[in-house]
Design a protein around this nucleic acid. Sequence first.
DNA 1: CGAGGGTTTGAAGTGCATCAAATAGTGTGG
DNA 2: CCACACTATTTGATGCACTTCAAACCCTCG
Lengths: 241, 241
Amino acid sequence: MLNTPFTTEDLLGSIGLFEGVSEGTLKQFRSQMTPKKYAKNEMVFAQGDSAYSFYVIKKGWVKLSRQTLDGEEAIIDILTEGHIFGETTFFEDVAYSFNAEAVEASQLISFPLPILKEAIMSDGTLSYNMLSGMSRRRQQQDLEIEHRTVQNASQRIGCFLLRLCKPDMASPIRLNLPYDKMLLASRLGMKPETFSRALNRLRKETDIRITGATIEFDSLSQLSTYSCSACSTAFPCVDHH
Amino acid sequence: MLNTPFTTEDLLGSIGLFEGVSEGTLKQFRSQMTPKKYAKNEMVFAQGDSAYSFYVIKKGWVKLSRQTLDGEEAIIDILTEGHIFGETTFFEDVAYSFNAEAVEASQLISFPLPILKEAIMSDGTLSYNMLSGMSRRRQQQDLEIEHRTVQNASQRIGCFLLRLCKPDMASPIRLNLPYDKMLLASRLGMKPETFSRALNRLRKETDIRITGATIEFDSLSQLSTYSCSACSTAFPCVDHH
DNA sequence: CGAGGGTTTGAAGTGCATCAAATAGTGTGG
DNA sequence: CCACACTATTTGATGCACTTCAAACCCTCG
């Protein structure tokens, strides 16, 4: 998969943002897009850089983060296929307010920010898609905050695993953690040490089997019973777009 | 102020969402809007209610919350003038996924949800405003998550106070907490007991003076030094729309 | 005045962070 | 293909911030 050429044919076809958008608008975007591959750990942009573009993730994982005054790194979000980033900058700032970095080999498409203004003003479908995406993201953020207060570390891991499951997965379910455990720990708001211990606790309390970065379990039910009992949303807390 | 009549004249005039929007669109909204006053603690809608409307806050404070399975209440957000809520439901669900309740005497304007679709499709400025608002809210949410991990309880309170300050306030600054301390505590992700103790700690560490729900201090600088040292964003973390 | 919620205070418990060190894994050059 | 260097992960011991439970206080409002 990683070796298939990253052509420009119908690159926008499978992206939610462009679904149903008029051919004219698509042409605009196609003519100004820049597809690019990023290596693992390659920066896309840094906090403070002048903001010229926004990005759509075609493949891979991208980490958004910020430097705190005392030198710590705060993870804002970790995104994957179909997600957009950098576009919020358009409404507020002249410079990016966070870092973006590929945490895996990734394929991104960038577009000049000004193209957005015209497209929003003229293409209702695009606006609608964009609002829809932002709205979904906002609800996810809400959940995120809730989870961090009502769930303990093990439950948060369990919930994260559940959200990795696609609806069409057959039992037994077998998952690979999408990125390394350190990053996952901070994504879930805990320290690596805590993550390690919490994952162990989760293994003891449920029927999951762990081998390195691979996790297996037979059914969602035990995991969701354990993880979601403190939660307000019925299982699943999922964003299956 | 609370006693001035809540007329329908130019009700939409001062709302960011409608800024610069065409007269035609405004007419649409005006013809379908329902302004209404809510008493303190009055429910606007409940989780699970069929979703027919979205709301704009004209005045007051509204709490969005959710029931967890074990009966706890999780605060999602607390909103005030100019904020919109319920509109995300439009993109996803047929029922509200949270409760909305006035925590003060408030004035809200509701609009039928379907009006949004047409307006988004046809009025670029409205779409733009809506995206801009959502984008700002999303950035605030990001900060919120960051704050809960990098700031301790006292710092979070200090940061909240700073965000209550309007840019045009003269020294000494005198603030009233906008709602009761129990609610504020959960807004800031802590228990009332913790809030009480943390506020005391804040008083010892900075120059703020506390009298009931009134807080006074001479300058922002000491407070922001104390509160924002752990933060990634330069002071202020503010959303002065 | 008295009832009932909001707020504060005290004492004790808990979960996660921190610090330290061992172990596993990964990529590199020889 | 192996040994080394370096990083990721795990494990142990200890500390601290916030929570929990309990009780007192206070304020408001009927």
